[in-house]
Design a protein around this nucleic acid. Structure first.
Lengths: 217, 217
DNA sequence: AATTGTGAATTCCTTCACAGCC
DNA sequence: GGCTGTGAAGGAATTCACAATT
């Protein structure tokens, strides 16, 4: 275990490794190696080893990694051995889609509350029975429900205000879907999923397609 | 204009610069500089200049950049001066949320069709009247509607199959929301928005929040 | 005087290659 | 023999700093 600063690239790859291991475990594989993983899932074996050794020595030289053990380690490193309660601000199409997202159901992430400022949306419930509160109840509900992750699913104009209110409410991590780059206090983790950037990037590569010419000898 | 390979980081930042310029233009600003942009929007001025010069010399030394001109250039570079027709595969919560997403309405991206394999979803329409087709009509509808971007909004298990079918149908760019890393033919642009990775990354930073207190072994 | 465009310096990330261990 | 863990090398992205330009 190093005290070195660990890059977000590494953390994101740990999620990928964990997924690969879950697939292997599901098909009954008990032992694997960085090379085997790299080949099956198109990764780089040295990178797998380097990423893992930031957190410990999980392998056995000459043998490889025990799938069950490594899964357990990655789950713990990523904090997936705990419940994380989520509050979604914005009960429009996106907010409700996230609240109903089945990907959460079997996982450690649990949508515990929804918030909106539109009177017409108050009281609506998600498929699993989570109710839409007025945004003015944010502080109270976040505290009562022990919500730690806030999701911003409101229009760009309101995103900064919502981030500020979430921060005030004592939340420690925010996933923002609005196409803005909000300011946050240090200590509050912010991650933005920017649909507009993704589409515009695709648009760029459509325009100048033919980027990838034939590889020289 | 260089022939150098341009990184995706640069392209993504161009989207951000364009947004900033749109804000400036909306408040009547006609001229700006890399420093002014950097200060207002928390960017790095050298990076702005370097990013822009991959595509041309848009500034005037001693003066800065003309907001209207630079917007026009970025719009053209990103291909936002053209319509891009989108087909969404998967008419569940996420697919319908994307189809109804207002961010598209005033932009150059237009959702032209929805697809699903569930009989119960066929014929449903989005708010703007786009109808859900059976996935078997993909090839025909993609051709008829001149769809160039495919969106994958299906469960992980079906994502690779959908990517293959989209590729077969002649689409040139894919935005994937399933938590997998599908294989694509070279020439087809693929971008994955991985919710699971984002949440797991936030979870990680929640666990070890505050690099000051390392956990004992 | 002010700001761009850019080579050089720096920082960060990835890959190589091999010593060390099973 | 085979595989991990890792220092060193290589490559990419960012930032610095200044000559060139208006």
């Amino acid at each position: 275990m190093k005290t070195e600063k660990i890059s977000e690239f590494t953390i994101n790859r740990l999620s990928i490794y964990l997924r690969c291991l879950n697939l292997l475990a599901a098909s009954g594989v008990t032992t694997t190696s960085s090379q085997a993983l790299a080949e099956q899932f198109q990764l780089n074996s040295a990178q797998i080893r380097k990423d893992l050794t930031y957190f410990g020595e999980f392998g056995v030289r000459g043998v490889g990694y025990n799938v069950t053990e490594l899964r357990a380690h990655l789950n713990e490193i990523l904090g997936l051995d705990r419940q994380h309660r989520i509050g979604i601000v914005g009960a429009g199409n996106l907010g409700m889609a996230l609240a109903n997202y089945r990907g959460f159901e079997h996982e450690c992430f649990q949508v515990a509350a929804l918030f909106d400022k539109e009177a017409s949306r108050l009281g609506i419930t998600s498929r699993s029975g989570v109710v839409v509160h007025h945004i003015d109840e944010l502080d109270e509900v976040v505290a009562r429900q022990r919500i730690v992750i806030g999701v911003v699913a409101v229009p760009a104009e309101n995103a900064q205000e919502v981030v500020d209110r979430l921060t005030e409410s004592g939340i420690s991590a925010i996933l923002n879907f609005a196409p803005v780059r909000p300011n946050t206090r240090p200590g509050v983790q912010l991650k933005t999923m920017d649909l507009a950037i993704s589409f515009e990037s695709l648009s760029y590569f459509l325009s100048d397609s033919g980027q990838d010419g034939p590889t020289p000898p």
